[in-house]
Write a protein that binds this DNA or RNA. Structure first.
Length: 590
RNA sequence: CGGGGCGUAGCGCAGCCUGGUAGCGCACCUGCCUUGGGCGCAGGGGGUCACAGGUUCAAAUCCUGUCGCCCCGACCA
């Protein structure tokens, strides 16, 4: 039996000043964690117990679909060089050398290690499919660790990898994970949404993220209140209201208008009395060429046209151009490409743009498809053009149309047209169809039924263990502390004798705690010689969902009190009944 | 990496501008007292003022540099 008086639960009356988000403050105040360095935390007794509860749930559900491994956290550089990620990961990877000078790194994920096992061992289609998982520390040299356990440099991840003979098999493995993740997050008591996710420039085909809504989160989720549509902002689309185009004027060709000093969409719209929806916005960027020779990074000019009132989503742009490494053009570069200063840029002549001999990549946002007679810059200082119509006045090849704009709240759901909502969320899990990338580059092959060598197709699937804890606290806190769902709380119930100097109270509390424990519950006995206020405040703080108060007045009537942390309501219970009452609460939730 | 802020006792802070004995609340230790919401009284311990260099008779305080941490932006479980 755990007795509070013997335990190390260093609660704080005040939170350290640098804790901002609720979960960070309460993890510190409740004595769950202590910080060792930026983004590096020690888990103390209560924190570790909650982590173990969570990993146990994850393990039980994963064991239904896969096999648990335990892989090294320390990796030789070679395997990462083989997959190409030694370069790609850049500064996000912790790197070190051994005494012989050989390069090593700390694992960020384990595609390479898993694939290196697969390529040595998997020989035949008969061995497929396989799902292998592990629960392990991961290391990422985050540019900016923050928000307590939300974004850290060392964290615990459940990561799994599937190997299948063909895409149909991958679909099955993927769906198994989808279902297992739902069971895991349900059992952890989280309210989550599954969203379509941006699958990155790495060639993955399908991807879902499991998100918990919270203002502490760093992602934006677009969701439909009516149908089931939900997507990461990086991927979301919307149905736009039809915009009325201006009528044809004159000979139907672009016509210059003098717009002295009118450099912004708003200036021009006001000056010409037109709507930004009938304008074109021109974005001029320089992107690093992923295909350039090693050691010679080359920059490609990229020009994107959007509807005047739309804004660019950078993740969508990076998917469209194949690199996330881009920046706005400098003024002299803009002059060189357009022959005009910023503020008056437009699409006419786009087929011939180049910078230092490199042809510009031109993209046109899909919302401009079918529009006509727009207002755009004239590529001439102090002039704009009316009557600009894509494809008539400047060429747009099929591959140049791109989804680049950020969806905004209130736009129509792509499925049903209902106004969409946008909310902040934290990502707790991610499932991802990897395809052939790692198996191909690292040389994993199996023989199929016909004796033909084929590359197995892979999936990769992650869950952030700390983020489950963090999300649960973000969802369930008040001014006194937080309360965890019993399944993941470090203790399910705390038994609190009001005055341990009172022999009777002490023995009743002791007996109740012992019986609860015999009934299979995780019980903490608060046997400290403290005033009741101190014990109540601590108990409210540390996330235990139920408390049994053993006080002299009630005990004299043969009763104790059950306190529900989430609702702050109490109910009396006779001492013989208390075991069943608590048992029922724990079985049926709050 | 760009921008901003902060480093003084375990935690929260004052002192710095205008250089001269390092201070407050909470926590901690001892004793008494108290026991249904961080109780009271008395006594006590704890600081190389992030680090290094400089200016000065004298530096927490002024100057320079370094490091650490937090927050806002670009990246991810």
């Amino acid at each position: 039996m755990h007795r509070w008086s013997q335990l190390f639960i260093p609660t704080l009356r005040e939170a350290p000043a640098d804790a901002e988000v609720a979960s960070h403050k309460y993890l510190l105040r409740s004595g769950y964690v202590r910080q060792l360095a930026a983004g590096i935390y020690s888990y103390l007794f209560l924190g570790q117990r909650a982590m173990l509860k969570i990993t146990q749930i994850v393990r039980e559900e994963m064991d239904k679909i896969g096999q648990e491994f335990y892989l090294p956290a320390l990796h030789p550089a070679e395997i990462w060089q083989e997959s190409g990620r030694w370069q790609v990961m850049g500064d996000n990877m912790f790197r070190l050398k051994d005494r012989k000078g050989a390069d090593l790194c700390l694992g960020m994920t384990e595609e390479e290690v898993m694939t290196s096992i697969a390529r040595r061992e998997l020989r035949s289609y008969k061995q497929l499919p396989q799902i292998w998982y592990q629960i392990q520390s991961k290391f990422r040299d985050e540019p900016r660790p923050k928000s307590g356990l939300l974004r850290v440099r060392q964290f615990t991840m459940k990561d799994s990898y599937s190997f299948d003979l063909d895409p149909a098999g991958l679909d099955v493995s993927y769906q198994k994970h989808y279902d297992a993740y739902c069971r895991i997050f349900d059992r952890c008591g989280l309210r989550y949404v599954v969203v379509e996710a941006h699958s990155g420039a790495m060639g993955g085909s399908q991807s879902h993220e499991f998100m918990v809504y919270t203002d502490a989160g760093e992602d934006f989720v677009v969701s439909c209140p009516n149908c089931r549509y939900a997507a990461n902002l990086e991927k979301a689309t919307s149905r736009l209201d039809v915009v009325e185009d201006y009528p044809d004027v004159g000979d139907g060709k672009p016509a210059p208008v003098h717009t002295p000093g009118m450099k912004t969409i708003e200036d021009v719209a006001k000056f010409l009395d037109v709507s930004p929806k009938n304008k074109m916005k021109t974005l001029a960027l320089m992107a690093t060429d992923a295909e350039a020779e090693a050691g010679k990074p080359r920059e490609i000019p990229v020009v994107a046209f959007l509807r005047g009132d739309h804004s660019l989503n950078e993740a969508k742009l990076s998917a469209a151009i194949g690199t996330a490494d881009f920046r706005p053009m400098r003024p002299e570069e803009i002059e060189a490409v357009f022959g005009s200063p910023a503020g008056f840029l437009g699409p006419i002549g786009s087929e011939n743009w180049h910078y230092q001999g490199i042809k510009a990549k031109v993209l046109v946002e899909r919302a401009l498809l079918g529009r006509k007679n727009l207002i755009a810059g004239a590529n001439r200082e102090d002039y704009h053009l009316r009557n600009v119509t894509p494809q008539r006045d400047f060429p747009v090849a099929n591959h140049q149309w791109a989804d680049l704009r950020a969806v905004e709240a209130g736009e129509g759901c792509p499925n049903c047209g209902t106004p969409l909502k946008v909310a902040k969320a934290v990502e707790i899990g991610h499932i991802f169809k990897l395809g052939y990338k790692y198996a191909e580059s690292m040389g994993a092959r199996v023989l199929d039924k016909d004796g033909k060598e084929v590359v197995p197709i892979m999936g990769s699937y992650g869950i952030g263990i700390e983020r489950i804890l963090t999300a649960a606290i973000e969802e369930n806190h008040d001014s006194d502390g937080f309360f965890l769902p019993p399944q993941i709380a470090p203790f399910e119930v705390v038994v609190t004798p009001i005055n341990v100097a009172d022999e009777k109270l002490r023995s009743v509390a002791q007996e109740i705690a012992a019986k609860l424990q015999q009934a299979g519950h995780d019980v903490l006995l608060d046997d400290r010689d403290e005033r009741p206020g101190v014990k109540f405040k601590d108990a409210d703080l540390v996330g235990i969902p139920f408390r049994v108060n053993v006080g002299s007045k009630k005990v004299a009537e043969g009763k104790v009190e059950v306190f529900h942390r989430s609702t702050r309501k109490s109910e009396d219970a006779s001492i013989p009944e208390i075991i069943d009452i608590v048992g029922n609460l724990l079985r049926h939730g709050q």
